[in-house]
Design a protein around this nucleic acid. Structure first.
Lengths: 201, 201, 201, 201
DNA sequence: TATGAATGAGTCTTCATTCAT
DNA sequence: CATGAATGAAGACTCATTCAT
């Protein structure tokens, strides 16, 4: 008799929305945005085609929501990441491990993002947000390399970024067959620990 | 009328085909395979929609032809690449420079390939050919690292691969803004030359 | 709890119903029946989509209810209109003024009716009721023109009807910019008063 | 073997386009723009749904094309209409007859236009063109009434317009059952000929 | 060989309507 | 009585592909 309460509706909404976003992320990541149809998403999410439009105004809007949410989650984790009480090398290592952890915890998201970054004008609004985040990280890394007395901190930062993107790419493409942790550890040991020896002045 | 009719036809065929493949590669790379329509390709190539089907039996077939052709070109270049008269480090450097050269000379192709590698089931036939090529390279590199007395040649090889893929990725995404040569040189100097010192036994 | 529950319910019912009909009339008139969605009506009326179906079994039923109610109101006014104690010319004038008054008092309704009359099969049930009403009026007018010794009372009636419909149309389309009263008065003076002079044989 | 010539294609295009516009006009007029689906138009025109989009970029664009074409035709006829060698009363009559002829020759078009004029924002671009045409006619009529020494030429013009619009409306709605010519003639005789007697100064 | 009109399956999206609460 | 989540059929539109010339 009584209508559902606001809270009940809100809960239902959150559940449906999450289910849709989850299904869409999976499919967008595996097949690509353009190649994924709303029908497929609806089927995967176990809902009707029409329902998606109760929550997202368009397929693009859905994509945007997915990216933004994962971005927010990522930033939450990143915020925790930096521990200024550590030395630069330790911070570097922690950062690398943090990136690895994030990628592992949300492989589909990173796969989708990689895919999107390859296409022009898929998402105008998103590009900016992502770039912003990246710029912050690079700046930070450059700073650390500066403290490590590296010859060209910026280049060194880009190289590190390239390595991380490369390793991520391999992990994303090869899925279960890629020993991500092993590779990361090997890299840290061989290319961080050894390379950036304390400079006893 | 003229006796050369057949050859002329063949030449026209080759020109049209090349124009179509060129246009398609450009668009597939920039917008993605699924998001590119035959109409767009035809317009870009300056031909009619129908003509495409004279040369390729389907959109997928066109994609396959593009990938295969570029692959063949690549292998031609790769074949030239290895110079066994050099020492392992020099071969490594030459290989890296070779990869960079290839990517630079055909950025769209590598962008497309990267894009395709992220999507399941876009191309069944292609996957295998590419994997084959990659396996050969890895084997070769592992061998070189073995000669360089590296602790774990396979991991070292994968790390190098990650570096190269990462650098390539940045170049592909950032386009003109990425100083590819500078980065490559920096990488070779700092991460190859310095790392693999001759081991005077 | 309170004894008046039923009446209160009834009152609420009437209010909601009226609000819905009011909102729907407004939107149907301004955008057209087919182009107006239930959602828009619900939003305009300040109620939920589902509630509409408590009062009307369908969108068509809602339209029907609106038309019928306005028709009833109109007939109430029309009933008052005819004053047999007046002479035919005076009755004519009164009728014209009555029509003008009605149109002014419910412009949206007349706009909607005009719109509906242009479309086939929008409403089967409605057509008949409206036609019935119109036939009565024409009969009455024809009678009056007969008393005025007009050459062809039926045609004269149709012409008057055409004028009234035309003036109404202008008013409906031009909204505030049309001087309805002025036009009506000018018409009465120039085309009624002057035209139908008492025929003192 | 040889491809179709430009002319052949052009002819095919014109035919298909005409068939689509013809079918669409019929349906838009009878059922209304919003209530008519592309499927219905395609079926009525005997073509596939997709073909419409070879010729018109959208449903709205189709509507616009229809209106504009009919407008052009109308203006061609109107241009012929005015004969300055006649006296004002004769010009008036000719104009009335011209309007009647146009409406008769393209009833669906006028039905559609009437329908459109009732809805806000169906067509932004069209509104202007139509208003422009109307303004010219009113100006002309006002001029004629001035020559006829009418008390208030502008009002008289609007009244005439109301008459004509009303008669047209009846004709449009009642279709075959409305004796348009008879009514027009009666109107001319009774409301033009008789009303505007030559003023022997 | 080359063209582009034509098709129809499939895409994104809207919307009247239902229903659990 | 009231809500709005959910459905599914239908609508506008796209696009790979075919085919007559």
């Amino acid at each position: 008799m009584a209508p559902k309460t606001k809270e009940q509706f809100e809960e239902i909404r959150q559940q449906s929305k999450a289910a849709i976003m989850q299904a869409a992320l999976e499919l967008f990541a595996q097949r690509g945005f353009a190649a994924t149809s709303i029908s497929q998403i609806a089927k995967e999410a176990g809902i009707s085609k029409g329902l998606m439009y109760n929550y997202f105004s368009s397929k693009e809007d859905l994509l945007k929501a997915i990216v933004e949410e994962a971005l927010k989650d990522g930033q939450k984790m990143t915020g925790v990441l930096w521990d200024d009480s550590l030395g630069p090398k330790e911070q570097l290592i922690q950062m690398i491990q943090g990136v690895i952890t994030q990628v592992k915890s949300n492989r589909n998201y990173w796969k989708l993002m990689t895919s999107l970054s390859l296409q022009k004008d898929v998402m105008s609004g998103i590009e900016d947000i992502v770039q912003e985040g990246k710029a912050g990280i690079i700046e930070r890394i450059t700073l650390l390399f500066g403290q490590l007395n590296v010859e060209d901190p910026l280049k060194e930062g880009y190289i590190l970024g390239a390595f991380l993107d490369g390793i991520m790419m391999h992990y994303i493409v090869l899925e279960e067959n890629y020993p991500l942790d092993e590779m990361a550890n090997y890299f840290i040991r061989e290319f961080i620990e050894k390379r950036y020896q304390p400079t006893k002045s």
